[in-house]
């Protein structure tokens, strides 16, 4: 049956997706855990696959009174190894950065996981997040890697202006309110 038919040879290599660094982050996530009373938090979801994270972002105390604030991000969540490893790597990568630096990092990493910028071999990576380049060969998994970065981008945009100063109208802690019929409640009858 296999003879004489057309054979597709463009098989992406799973080793590129599940690089050691990614597997390691998914098994031993950094910065994981709920932060009670956190200043800024935002939930991110991939509704079609069920990946779910909540980011907890805090401002680090600054030594100089006029310095731009630096952030620290923690998370909790569940989902596939790519989404959870990407979140763990992100929290590590953006912590102690200013909002502007974090935005720059978000943009740079988007180039890595979408394949917009070229890849390096696993031995040459300067930062863990560069291991996400393998995701770009698996189009359906890009959204898994993108989830924490898109969520943080939204969190920062909602709470900080273009220069990185906290917006006066910033809403402190907010869990995403999805669209839907929230004003009326279903009358669910139990079988008991």
């Amino acid at each position: 049956m296999l003879q004489g038919s057309e054979i597709n040879k463009e098989t992406p290599n799973l080793g590129e997706l599940y690089q050691e660094i990614i597997v390691e982050h998914s098994r031993r996530p950094r910065c994981k855990g709920r932060v009670e009373g956190c200043q800024f938090c935002l939930e991110g979801k991939n509704p079609l696959c069920g990946d779910n994270i909540t980011l907890f972002c805090q401002l680090q105390p600054s030594a100089q009174p006029n310095a731009l604030p630096r952030i620290k991000v923690n998370f909790e969540g569940s989902g596939c190894s790519i989404s959870q490893a990407s979140t763990s790597m992100m929290c590590e990568a953006v912590s102690n950065k200013t909002v502007a630096e974090a935005r720059e990092q978000i943009n740079k990493v988007e180039g890595i996981y979408t394949g917009r910028v070229g890849s390096k071999s696993e031995d040459d990576l300067e930062e863990d997040v560069e291991a996400l380049h393998g995701v770009s060969k698996f189009p359906v998994r890009i959204k898994c890697a993108a989830l924490p970065w898109k969520t943080l981008e939204l969190l920062l945009n909602e709470n900080f202006d273009d220069l990185g100063h906290q917006r006066p109208e910033s809403l402190a802690c907010k869990i995403n309110e999805p669209c839907g019929n929230k004003t009326r409640k279903l009358k669910v009858i139990s079988s008991e």
Binding site: T11, P12, L14, C49, D51, G79, I82, F138, R141, C144
Partner: peptide, 22 residues
Amino acid sequence: TLHAHDLATILDGSNVAMRAGH
């Protein structure tokens, strides 16, 4: 221990098409 989406992606590497998720 292996998430359903990871398993489905790895199965695709062996040309096995299965649905993963909810």
